[in-house]
């Protein structure tokens, strides 16, 4: 244990995802020795992300305005919606250049072990979006792991009763247990073009 502010910083850093106690200590001492200007820049970036970034009213993606760039873009196909867990998955799919429709970001996967059920995700918003707009195809692009699969299962059941709606899943080729963000563009692109009706 260190004294006061240093230990506070180590504790705060240690709460970040992927940062263990040793890394937290390393980052804290790095910051302690860094140039004041560098620390100020980091401070400002942190501040801005909380104040300047909002979530898109339509799709839930991170955005600078109340409606995100993709939802505003008239060239995007409004009839196809790709449902993903996190904003970083939108980026991953955009990089493939395979998909011309729009997105819906759930904000996670159904994970009862972490207390996350349908009410904790943007599922109700997805259903009302489909009910009120000209959407004819929904592509489910969850992480190829247990929580992702279960989330897709649940959504398939909820979407079954919309008349004229095609629901597709990313084709296999993505091994189970991984994160979508680690798939290479080729694999992910192929998985998208080979998607199937469920």
């Amino acid at each position: 244990m260190y004294e006061g502010p240093v230990q506070d910083l180590i504790d705060e850093l240690g709460r970040l995802p992927g940062v263990g106690p040793k890394s937290a200590q390393r980052i804290a001492f790095h910051l302690l020795g860094a140039e004041p200007a560098d620390v100020t820049r980091l401070q400002e970036a942190l501040q801005k992300v909380k104040e300047g970034v909002v979530f898109c009213d339509v799709c839930g993606n991170v955005s600078e305005e109340s409606t995100c760039r993709i939802c505003r873009d008239a060239r995007r196909d409004p009839s196809a919606v790709c449902v993903v867990e996190e904003p970083k998955d939108v980026l991953a799919i955009e990089r493939t250049r395979e998909f011309k429709g729009r997105y819906h970001v759930l904000g996670g996967a159904l994970d009862p072990l972490s207390g996350i059920g349908p009410e904790q995700l943007r599922i109700r918003q997805l259903l009302s979006r489909i009910g009120s707009q000209e959407i004819t195809e929904v592509i489910l692009a969850m992480d190829p792991n247990t929580e992702g699969e279960a989330t897709a299962t649940y959504l398939v059941r909820m979407l079954r009763d919309f008349p004229g709606l095609t629901v597709t899943r990313l084709a296999s080729g993505l091994p189970m247990g991984g994160d979508l963000e680690f798939a290479d563009e080729l694999t992910l692109g192929r998985a998208l073009s080979g998607r199937r009706t469920v």
Binding site: L174, P175, M176, G178, D179, D184
Partner: peptide, 16 residues
């Protein structure tokens, strides 16, 4: 390395 989609171990150490 199990979260990389190329991991052979990944799918085998999922819940259940």
């Amino acid at each position: 390395g199990v979260r990389r989609t190329t991991s052979r171990l990944g799918a085998r150490v999922e819940p259940f």
